[in-house]
Simulated scan of single mutants.
Amino acid sequence: MSEAAAEPATESAPELFRILFLGDVVGEPGRKAVAAMLPELRDELKVDFAIVNGENSAGGRGITPKIAISLMRAKADVITTGDHIWDQKEIISFLGDEPRLLRPVNYPEGAPGKGTLILQTKKGKVGIINLQGRTFMRDALENPFSVINEVVDEMRRETPIIFVDFHAEATSEKVAMGWHLDGKVSAVVGTHTHVPTADERVLPNGTAFQSDAGMCGPLDSVIGSQIEPVLEKFLTQLPAKFGVARGPVRINGALVTLNPATGKAVSIERIARTWEE
């Protein structure tokens, strides 16, 4: 009797890496919703790493040290920001002490804090880049398309897993950045407009992209603000104070699944949940 031929060895599928990104947290309602929902989402979606944009978490404008700590206690591994990062003055010294709170990397040299971070996880190192656009934005920062090249090249020496939060107003600028970084980073996800876009996809060279993740803020609002003052402003053109709205909160974000060996994305999925206190 001849011996049975041995079965050919098969390569096991690579263990995937999942990054959950939550869009701009707006005010107390957004903070409470993220604190309640993020731990649950991490378990439900089998998340390995969570990033939260907290730039509107202090009354809709900026972030404070206390809020940043509370978001990290709610299992946010890193907090990104944007053009409102300086609105709460006490955050300036905190930026120098807490590396997990980022400000846009393309601020001029000498600005407090940093715009990049690499953290070790059980499945390898993860690089995070906070970047801000220039089109229709209030701050004239360094050209993000020029700055990002050197930043990504340096980060890729340590890890292929790189997530970019591109905080920008113009959809065209965000889409262009996605194509600019396709194949160089794992994901480019936009923030700032507070409205989630339906253009999530994996670009041809393996970069997950979405123009805007949306916000974690009040559902019945105008991008997080109370409806009546905003309508009054549009109707009269007179100055008005926009307070943060109340009621049910919509948690918006994106789940990026990637191969940790290559850093290339396998999929990107919009995440949307409603939370009521």
Rank of each mutant, 00 (worst) to 15 (best):
V126E: 03
I162H: 08
P160I: 03
G206V: 04
R156C: 03
R134D: 02
F163P: 00
P108W: 12
K184V: 01
V151T: 14
V126M: 12
G183W: 05
D139M: 11
Q132P: 00
H167G: 09
A187M: 13
H180R: 14
T171L: 11
P108Y: 14
A168R: 02
L117A: 09
P218A: 12
N143E: 02
E150R: 15
K123T: 05
P160T: 04
E173Q: 12
A198M: 12
P144V: 09
A187D: 01
G133P: 07
D182N: 14
N130V: 09
V188R: 01
P196I: 07
D139F: 14
M215L: 08
G190D: 07
G124N: 10
V222K: 05
D220L: 13
R201M: 13
E109G: 13
F136K: 12
T207I: 06
M155K: 02
P144H: 05
I161S: 02
E142D: 14
K123P: 03
L131K: 09
M215D: 04
L181V: 10
V147T: 15
D165Y: 07
L119D: 07
K125T: 04
L119A: 08
C216I: 06
D199N: 08
N149C: 03
A168Y: 07
V151W: 01
L117Q: 07
T159H: 06
E150D: 13
R201F: 02
T116A: 07
M155S: 04
I129M: 11
L203Q: 08
E109C: 02
M137E: 11
P204R: 01
G183N: 10
A198S: 14
R156M: 04
